[in-house]
Design a protein around this nucleic acid. Structure first.
Lengths: 342, 342
DNA sequence: CTGTTAGCGCATTCAA
DNA sequence: TTGAATGCGCTAACAG
């Protein structure tokens, strides 16, 4: 049961402490901060009383005074994908340890919304920003603008393909090669590739790896084996229909992510195809849930979202702790993905 | 490419505007706020210059001055469950519209962590708090404490079972009755119930509904048909083993949630049981993903997490907009769940 | 309609 | 080692 606002005493300030002790507020302030030039006696006295009064510094005052909010903004496409939830965990964990708060915003893959979130966060004077950009994000002007306000930005996971930014991402190139080669080794010659929406600014490492694997294995790559989905079920179905109507049907599919993989598998089953016999699927992990399926993808590329979030936060803190007169070289951390065979 | 901090001019303040226009800062302040007693001419002048200078009020100053942060804290068990992500969307949407920010914290179902998050948020002077409590949360002292700081709290979804709180939750009672009766109608006589961890403070409406359905249909309830899981796969498996080793095995299972349902189905399949023949499963929705399964639960109880989040936020704003001298009656919004038959 | 002033809580510079 | 004084940017009470 709550106290009904009855005994709502005023929140204590250093001023009160000073008055009660008949000393100056600056002395109190110093005592509370273990300032070197302070008498041990006074210090103890102050700290004791402060504790008794349940004194707590007013963060908003400190924020105002210091021009820092001890808050970082985290902008993500969405929270629905377990993938991003894991990334948040990485961010939150580190922020928590450093006594920072995390302000969260979802762009829902909408550029206008992303811009608005950036504005809101800037106005809220976040100390720094972590961003995984929306699919629609072509230019990054709305982020560059933050430089004027000395708000550092670290991009992670979905990183814009432009120079001179700080970023943390997970390279999919080599794992994609591994994935495609795994399929080759299993005897597949025609591997369909369902790629995701083509954003202007995100590297298409899946495609690059797909191409390279063909090159390395001296297998002619047929453009007709590449289809595109906007990630909706309908679009994925269409892409798949296109691939399966080819004279030389693919016997395996490299799917953009687990969502696409599941839609693929579902569709294939509806068409009475035998999974892992008529068609095999390899994918990029965003759903740990695939273990519950009867026919999960035979392998997937793990992208370590938690790790990415943590590393990005680390980098951001590094930037935050850099004196503003120092020049900071742009740092781009590249993690390596791993092919997990199920 | 970023501007390399070169042209970092100072962020403009009303003071600058006042100086440039040779008027007082209060006039500027009023002009910017469309204060009634202000000359149209001056107002236009000020607003024009402010726009030119890209003036933006310093939020931290306003927060400090007003004693408000325009931020609400959102404490959840975790973000991993799609269920909670949906709830967040409901919160974020409304907060966004009201120009509020959302500070997020995950308790990971750990009481100590929940307490620490409450502290952090209090120190950060959030204006209000939305909470879905952890499984370990027995007493709510750490929330009651916030009353001293005039920080209103609205509990939602996982609501503590105590009087005199504001809350929004979704009643599972009637849908549970519906679910069990659906199974009865399909000819099942023995329905196992795998309940979740028994928290001291959360109502066990599933159990109540389960019992009531039996009563209404004059079917003797056997206690042996009730098992408990801590939600881990091992624990669910144990619970299921217990139920399936009964002389009178259940032919259907009411599972605590989709996770439990999936583990149940997986285990049953491993034991060569035919899903929907030897055993049927009904569950509480937390994973929209079940549509990808070959044998999803035959029905599930929808709890409208988005709606809950939105309503809780609405209620919180109502509290925030209440003058502190008014007494606020405790409000408990109860939504109704719905049985979705697949 | 506009200007002057005070003050929110704190850190910090300057004096003592 | 301590105190007095200043100011961060803004709002609002008060005075003209």
């Amino acid at each position: 049961m709550f106290y009904l606002h009855a005994m709502s005493e005023k929140v204590p300030t250093i001023k009160e402490i000073a008055r009660k002790l008949n000393i100056s507020i600056s002395t109190v302030s110093r005592a509370l901060h273990d300032h070197p030039s302070i008498g041990l006696r006074t210090k103890m006295q102050v700290q004791k009383l402060a504790a008794e009064m349940n004194y707590e510094p007013n963060q908003t005052a400190i924020q105002f005074k210091q021009g820092k909010t001890f808050t970082i903004g985290l902008i993500l496409p969405n929270l629905m994908e377990e993938y991003f939830s894991l990334a948040i965990n990485g961010v939150e964990e580190l922020a928590f340890k450093n006594n920072y708060n995390v302000l969260i915003g979802q762009s829902h893959d909408d550029l206008e919304r992303e811009k608005k979130i950036v504005e809101t966060m800037r106005k809220h004077r976040v100390d720094g920003l972590l961003v995984s950009i929306s699919k629609q994000t072509g230019s990054i002007e709305h982020f560059e603008q933050l430089d004027k306000y000395k708000i550092p930005v670290v991009f992670f996971d979905r990183v814009p393909n432009v120079p001179d930014i700080h970023s943390v991402w997970c390279s999919l190139y080599y794992s994609t090669i591994d994935a495609v080669e795994l399929l080759f080794k299993k005897g597949h010659q025609r591997i369909g590739f369902i790629q995701g929406p083509l954003s202007l600014n995100i590297k298409n490492e899946r495609l690059d790896g797909y191409i390279e694997a063909h090159k390395r294995n001296k297998i002619t790559l047929q453009e007709s084996l590449i289809a595109t989905t906007d990630l909706s079920k309908e679009s994925t179905t269409q892409a798949l229909e296109k691939l399966l109507s080819l004279k030389n049907k693919p016997t395996a599919i490299l799917a953009f992510n687990d969502t696409v993989a599941l839609d693929t598998i579902q569709y294939a089953k509806k068409k009475k195809m035998k999974i892992n016999k008529d068609i095999s699927v390899v994918s990029y992990a965003n759903w740990p849930i695939t273990t519950y399926l009867d026919y999960p993808p035979i392998a997937s590329v793990e992208q370590f979202p938690y790790e990415q979030g943590a590393r990005a936060t680390e980098l951001l803190f590094k930037l935050l702790n850099t004196k503003s007169d120092q020049t900071i070289p742009y740092e781009n951390v590249v993690l390596k993905s791993e092919l997990i065979i199920h």
